[in-house]
Amino acid sequence: MTEKSLFKTATIGLTGAWLGFFVLIPNVMILATSFLQRDEAAFVRLDFTLENYRRILDPVYLQVFGHSAAMALVATMVCLALGYPFAYALARTRPGLRHLLLLLVIIPFWTNSLIRTYAIRSLLATQGVLNKLLLFTGIIDEPLRLLYTGTAVTIGLVYILFPFMVLPLFAVIEKLDTRLLEASADLGAGRFQTFVRVIIPLTMPGIIAGGLLVFLPALGMFYVSDLLGGAKDLLIGNFIKNQFLDARDWPFGAAASVTMTLIMALMLIAYFFSIRKIGKKEIR
């Protein structure tokens, strides 16, 4: 008994210490830095200021945030459009095949996403696999300029984040009670009406969860923009990296990072509220 509780204390203590040391302390440091001033020699000077947050509201930087959010939103929408039918089909296939398909969705995770981004680069290149194939089959006469465009960044983000959309969708669709669909049909709803008024509301938690899981990381994946977009489409992640490395403006980079965390937190709170609302509706 004591051994068990000691073990419990030890594991919880270890996890707590780990989180405190590697999550809490760095975040508190970033939060603190965001209220300090830039210093050419020592990175930060111990002078309190709100200037960094005021600068984020500067149109130049709002544009960076807006552009990044737009890119992430497009990636999320594409993931949803592709992921929803896929997850639906997945949930309706027979168990043996389903597990195989799920495994296929997850396998790419076993390879580092940076390496997969390089792989996409050689697929999309002017003399890459895709262009060679299209030229060979005579579909196009001139190679497509795909690499180093906004489209390439979207393709990269969608590819890397696709499983994060599929898995939560699959989880809710699998649990979907088919009797409700039958009831809907019995009450005279057509397929479209059933889909819009029954299936979508019931799977909304999965849609929102998947959306957040794609949207939030998409804001920060600076290497996708660097490698596939030719460093032209700045994501918030690029912006933060530039502030820390190139401009050596740590307080400003920290302020941007805190702002991004806040946006994420707000969206998660909104998510929990919407889930509760949906849950209540169901009971009624």
Partner: peptide
């Protein structure tokens, strides 16, 4: 160029998104 790098950097960010 000392502190002027901050000015360069803000135009640089703008150049890449604007």
């Amino acid at each position: 160029i000392g502190e002027a790098i901050v000015i360069y950097e803000s135009w640089w960010e703008k150049l890449k998104t604007g």
